[in-house]
Amino acid sequence: MTFSPGLEARFADLLTHYPEGRHRGALIPMLMYAQDEVGAVTPDLMAELAARLGISVLQVDEVVGYYSMLHKKPQGKYHVQICTNVACMLLGGAELYEQACTRLGVGHKQTQASGRFSLEEVECIGACSWAPAIQVNYDFHHDVTPAKLDEILEGLQ
């Protein structure tokens, strides 16, 4: 499996971060960065990283299933993550999520057939004082109102 030169450089640098013989430490960052490029944690990606780090595919699989940001299936071009945890819930996070479901026509962890949007109801994303908050891919949007949500999603069409 081949990656972009930029990602390869990032991997090469990552592998220098750990004590000798402990480069397995790079597994989670490698998965995260590679997922961004590949689109998902595919079986090929898992096998490739297992081989590079000298561990079994099962050991990679154990890790992948544990972390909620690692996805085996590709997500939409815009992955809309709406927090409904307490701080956001108090200020309408759950309603925003319902609104997104209706507007995007998909539910939790579902992707539009067009591949443009996917939706996820997420746990606290660390924006509680500026709730309700959402993330689209890695971008935060704070103090989201129903109108603002429409505007954000509109802007991504």
Binding site: R24, G25, L27, I28, I55, E62, Y66, S68, M69, E123
Partner: peptide, 19 residues
């Protein structure tokens, strides 16, 4: 990569080791 439990210090260390 998305795990509240990794805020617990020993779990964080496991995660740092790629587990």
């Amino acid at each position: 990569a998305g795990a509240y439990e990794c805020g617990e210090e020993s779990a964080l260390l496991e995660s740092l080791e790629g587990k």
